[in-house]
Design a protein around this nucleic acid. Structure first.
Length: 663
RNA sequence: GCUGCCGUAGCUCAGGGGUAGAGCACGUCCUUGGUAAGGACGGGGUCGUAGGUUCAAUUCCUAUCGGCAGCACCA
């Protein structure tokens, strides 16, 4: 049918990236276009971009458009290479393991995966064999040919070839829609495309990485498929750089560094819960106190609500029904003739999974006037969630955690200014912590939700407006809001480019309604306050995990659990070291002494490996002159200065960023 | 929760049907040395837990707990 329309077309004007226009008497393929520009370009062409959309090189261009020939030099080439590599992987697997069904194989960040259905499990030992076969298919340089099929034909074809999953995908497409099938050699796959002209264009810079289970269509009710992950790049150099980056990420693993630096540990008897060691807890408190000061200065009040609250509150809030499975529930039986609950029933209480219901109870004490609003209520209390076993991951996902949570009770009119103020606070806090906002997304109404559509309309609009007036570019995250309201998600970027969603701002018209919070308005009548749920760091636990990985354990001075270790050259200096310790300690620094009868080399090494930011060496010379020799982590030079000056300077340097006005 | 892999000394790991080994750490002694490991000796493990197979299990099997990777979930 494409040929038919091709013949009927009129003159064609194609605008190149440099603004020049190429005219053709009728439709041309991307390859013909490339050839008309230059022979070299035609040879290098992989695909063509039509008004920003990538298309096959051999597909006729029928309409006027902005066009761009995609070559290997273009970053867009990665997308093509990875997708083609996924196809080659599928072909290789089917050649090697007959009877294996193919399903889907999309690109992901830095690579691709392909999901297979096969009774027998693949093993990592199969990878070299599969990679060899892939190389062979690439060497064959099979042409990738796009064909347009009728949907029913396609269903029939895939059924007949035993590809039930593919058949199901096609079957679920609208009945009158044609589908595209790509053939490479003798192998066919349902695919939207686009693809490069032949498998030889892939090159050799690919590698299979991981093997894992994945549900068919991402639904845990469906059968589990076997997913093979791979990565593919334009050349070996890019591939190696990526593999090195993976190693870097492994080196930064907060679980490993947490153990090495003696920050915290986990053990079987408290799965998903953290045992904070003195150094880790010092870091935790430094971070919590920082946030606390920022909130204090931003007009928040801090509270602490109970951890154990009767189920009635959670039933009213909706958490009991929607998230009950993930709550820790305690059944208290009647005792000594008392009734546990009333009616002689055992009492059901819940360990709070979040703070909002508790905060509403505090809000509801006494009568609130519109003059009292906004009330910004913060808490650093422990929340408990019975996370699925497989979800637990170091500090990143735990069952007991604290959020830098706060709820702003305000009027509808105040949503805007409160939201903007929060965005400013968040931005400033991220800067202080060494991050920047990488991305902002607005997550709107999910399927599982409470409240009327009218209320959701109002809430979503409020967030759109807030983001606009805070001047933050954002994109949408459809259907990912909380059950009580839409949310803004703030992502930060760490030192190796990974994005983490930490901050959040949620508008909630529902919770005040469900838990019956009211204030008296100017008109003397009762009104519902709006609740803004907001967090800057999100989970303190997770945020510390991110900090550890971001800084590889080399924390900025104000967060470092130990600021300085005083190392003696010989034990003759122990007395003076004690004086140094006292002076620095009095200046507010977190200091330790190392008077072991070890050589100074060993002491430097030990404390450097512990990522202690400052090492103060004292020997006879320093004791006589009342000085210290300062060595910074990863520094070469030593800096000799009078003790009093060192204490003053370092104490200043160790101040948290919000207190360091002189710095 | 699902799939796969794993669980040996405080840590990192080797080993393997006949009741265990290295390095680091730890302890004692010697060493008092100016910026990333001074030396000697020594202590330390019912091989995650419970069953089963076997003359014999830390090793094989099953269950369970926990961990890792991914998926699902994430108020």
């Amino acid at each position: 049918m494409e040929h038919a329309s091709r013949a009927a077309s009129s003159p064609l004007r194609l605008t190149l990236p440099d603004g020049s226009v190429k005219e053709f008497s009728g439709p041309v393929t991307g390859l013909e276009l490339a050839a008309s520009i230059g022979k070299g370009l035609a040879a290098a062409a992989l695909a063509v971009k039509l008004d920003g959309e990538m298309r096959d090189l051999m597909r006729p261009i029928e309409h006027d458009a902005r066009v761009e020939i995609v070559t290997r030099k273009s970053p867009d080439a990665l997308e093509l290479i990875r997708h083609d590599t996924a196809h080659v992987l599928a072909e290789a697997v089917q050649e090697l393991f007959p009877g294996t069904q193919v399903t889907i194989g999309p690109n992901i960040e830095n690579g691709f995966y392909y999901d297979f259905a096969r009774d027998q499990p693949f093993s990592l030992d199969d990878f070299p064999k599969i990679e060899d076969k892939m190389r062979a298919i690439i060497a064959r340089d099979e042409k990738l040919v796009r064909e347009v099929w009728n949907r029913d034909e396609a269903v029939e074809y895939f059924k007949n070839t035993g590809e039930n999953y593919k058949a199901e995908i096609v079957h679920d497409l609208p009945a009158n829609e044609d589908v595209t099938v790509y053939t490479q050699g003798t192998w066919k796959d349902l695919c939207r495309g686009p693809h490069m002209p032949s498998t030889g264009k892939i090159g050799t810079a690919f590698k299979l990485l991981k093997l894992a289970g994945a549900y068919w269509r991402g639904d845990s009710k469906n059968p589990m498929l076997q997913r093979i992950y791979g990565t593919a790049w334009r050349d070996e150099k890019e591939l190696n750089a990526y593999l090195t980056m993976i190693e870097e990420a492994e080196k930064r693993d907060h679980r490993k560094i947490g153990k090495e630096l003696d920050l915290f540990h986990f053990q079987d008897e408290a799965a998903g819960s953290v045992f904070w060691h003195p150094k880790g807890w010092t870091l935790y408190r430094a971070l919590e106190n920082y946030v606390r000061r920022r909130l204090d200065k931003s007009g928040y009040v801090e509270v602490l609500a109970p951890q154990l609250i009767d189920s009635s509150i959670f039933k009213a809030s909706g958490h009991w029904d929607l998230y009950g499975d993930n709550m820790f529930k305690i059944t208290v039986p009647p005792r000594n003739g008392e009734s546990g609950g009333g009616d002689g029933e055992p009492k059901q209480i819940g360990l709070k999974p979040m703070n909002c219901p508790g905060h509403v109870q505090i809000f509801k004490q006494g009568i609130k006037s519109y003059r009292d609003l906004p009330i910004r209520m913060a808490e650093f209390g422990m929340c408990h969630r019975n996370e699925a076993h497989g979800a637990l991951h170091g500090l990143m996902r735990v069952r007991q955690f604290v959020t830098d949570d706060a709820h702003i009770f305000c009027t509808e009119d105040q949503i805007q200014s409160e939201s903007v103020a929060f965005c400013e606070l968040l931005r400033s806090a991220y800067t202080d912590l060494g991050f920047e906002i990488a991305r902002v997304r607005l997550a709107d109404r999910p399927e599982k939700r409470v409240g009327s559509d009218a209320v959701w309309d109002k809430s979503e609009q409020a967030l759109h407006r807030a983001l606009k007036s805070a001047n933050l570019p954002y994109d949408m995250n459809p259907g990912d809001g909380a059950f009580y309201g839409p949310k803004i998600e703030f992502y930060l970027r760490d030192a190796i480019g990974r994005e983490w969603q930490c901050g959040t701002l949620q508008v909630d018209f529902n919770m005040p309604e469900r838990l019956d919070a009211t204030y008296i308005g100017e008109d003397g009548q009762k009104h519902r306050p709006v609740m803004l749920h907001r967090a800057i760091l999100g989970s303190m636990h997770r945020f510390i995990g991110i900090l550890v990985e971001h800084y590889v354990g080399k924390f900025p001075l104000w967060l470092a659990p130990i600021h300085a270790v005083i190392c003696t050259i010989t034990n003759d200096a122990d007395g003076y070291a004690q004086e140094v310790y006292q002076t620095l300690s009095d200046a507010g620094l977190r200091v330790q002494m190392d008077t072991r009868p070890e050589k100074i080399n060993a002491k430097i090494r030990d404390h450097s490996l512990q990522k202690i930011p400052l090492i103060l060496v004292v020997g006879k010379k320093e004791a006589d002159a009342k000085t210290v020799a300062l060595r910074r982590l990863d520094g070469e030079a030593q800096d000799i200065m009078p003790l009093a000056e060192a204490a003053r300077k370092l104490a200043q340097e160790a101040l948290p960023p919000d207190m360091n006005h002189a710095g």
